[in-house]
Design a protein around this nucleic acid. Sequence first.
DNA 1: TCCATAAGTTAGCTGAAACTAAATAATGTC
DNA 2: GACATTATTTAGTTTCAGCTAACTTATGGA
Lengths: 225, 225
Amino acid sequence: MVHEQLISAAVEDYAKAIYELEVRDGRARTSALADRISVTPASASQMVKRLAELGLVSYSRYRGARLTEKGRRLALEVIRHHRLLELFLVEEFGMSWDQVHAEAEALEHVLSEQVEERIAARLGEPVVDPHGDPIPTVTLEIEECATRGLESLEPGERGVFTRVSDSEPAMLRFLAERGIAPGDRLEVVDKQPFDGPVFVRFSGAVEVLGGGLARAMRVRLDPER
Amino acid sequence: MVHEQLISAAVEDYAKAIYELEVRDGRARTSALADRISVTPASASQMVKRLAELGLVSYSRYRGARLTEKGRRLALEVIRHHRLLELFLVEEFGMSWDQVHAEAEALEHVLSEQVEERIAARLGEPVVDPHGDPIPTVTLEIEECATRGLESLEPGERGVFTRVSDSEPAMLRFLAERGIAPGDRLEVVDKQPFDGPVFVRFSGAVEVLGGGLARAMRVRLDPER
DNA sequence: TCCATAAGTTAGCTGAAACTAAATAATGTC
DNA sequence: GACATTATTTAGTTTCAGCTAACTTATGGA
Ligand SMILES: [Mn+2]
Ligand SMILES: [Mn+2]
Ligand SMILES: [Mn+2]
Ligand SMILES: [Mn+2]
């Protein structure tokens, strides 16, 4: 009857998802969470209660959850694992950036601190993953720099394509085929209404990007002059 | 209602353990299995029944289990993962041979065929792991060559130290400290009764090895002349 | 052959984490 | 401010994989 206090893979995935929703929306609401984890809202609701019992989140019924400091540390630990693994698979094994997310999703829960350390050392303590997402440091510092969804830019606005959702292989393949990658400078030249395509210039060539794709791409705007 | 036929990590561990017991004893009896997996005999008994439902073992009550062809393939798949991972961690990350078993025990269930392939390629399709255990090929061939426990050799017998149980870090550290490794030639020079120590010559030096250690070490005997 | 002991099985229970269906709270519109 | 709609929670089940306690079978001496 040892009340094992084991943190399961499921709990880790919830912590990670809550972290990401909190960055985006300031809190994690039940259905957004359910959506992200691919589970019914009922299940997510139950699990949030469990995370609260474990001291990982605070929440009040009907108004979403927020990570505690302990929960935040857990989330960042898992995110560090995930992003290091993605980068490792790309750099060392030459896997493509649309495959590595799924691999990392499973390996992240099973990576020891020992092996994490070796991977980080081998990669030279990297700070961003293949999708442009920042990798938390060993001490779990992270800077989430402010970005805007590409779909929200107006014609004339410029910036750097910084990161892209790692969970849609098809989108990633589409971008790779056109040679578009995080770090690229861009300028929006035109945009059609009703979630229509965006016309974007990347070092010369203008690309037409559909609404869904544009929403998955984050841009760091050039500072106003 | 797709009858998902998901093979869990627990089921994989049972298949692997049954395989190893079958090699040693010809079949896997409930308590040996329970012992190896560190569960109660009641639990092992239940799980053997489940494996049977999954078509992985055949068994008759009270007389142990044997893998079906399907079960054997599953076991060898997991063993391939395990041993490739151990070797990878030793070769690429410089981890010591007493640490890698625990790491591999968890990673083995989560390694995709893709990544398995890359690891095997990187290591040059290796055939033995750091403990001298054979690695099944991609097509799951394995040759389990006949060995004897070092404790069973009589003074005067010679052979090659071939493999050692990977699950006892302390023993592995002990051997490493003395520079004893799989592949070493040896000759038993003396042996004390009652599970007592064995005196073994390795390239010059004679080592005194306790009964427990000797039992964990497997030797391929020189052919009789 | 009988029986004590060891080995194995069954029954019943637990906790995780999912589900469906039903109930309840929050919200936005008129 | 009432109420329809949407979001969230609760209640009740399910499956997996473990446990203990009680029971059953196998086995090896005497
Ligand atoms: Mn995951
Ligand atoms: Mn990523
Ligand atoms: Mn395992
Ligand atoms: Mn091994």
